[in-house]
Amino acid sequence: MNRRPSPILEHGVVSAAGPMLVFSLYLLAAGHNQPGGGFAGGLVAGVTVVLAWAAGGPDTVRRIVPVRSSVLLGLGLVIATLTGFVSLVAGGAFLESGYLERTLPLIGTVKLVSPLGFDIGVYLVVVGMSLGLVRALGGEPPEEEVGS
């Protein structure tokens, strides 16, 4: 497939990618109370990656998410697992959730729940997966030195 991606399409996708990634983060953050969560969020980011590939190929993908997929995968896995261990070390059960409620000046009441940390791990893995799969299966022409 030695087509030149259309510059207009590419531009469009790259400019749309930012809002889509923000939306995916919103899904991640809202998931505990609204539809969404790490999976849905990660998958939206994944779809963004696919669109970027379709519009501009691997280079565009790299411009949008400039990380190796393996780093995201490893990081996600480590974060999710460590969340489990944090509560274990704190004397609770593995993966037991902890809650922290603070009233911060200006922002108001912020509720921090440890499952969010876990969900971030999920999100990272799903993004890393989308990235890795697109890079590997779409890896033609294979000019890029793929990290994963």
């Binding site: 999976f39 799903v126 997966m129 799969l133 299966l137």
Partner: peptide, 13 residues
């Protein structure tokens, strides 16, 4: 769904 997705991707590869 998600697990099946991962395995399907592998099978495609």
């Amino acid at each position: 769904i998600v697990i099946t997705f991962g395995v399907t991707a592998l099978l495609l590869a």
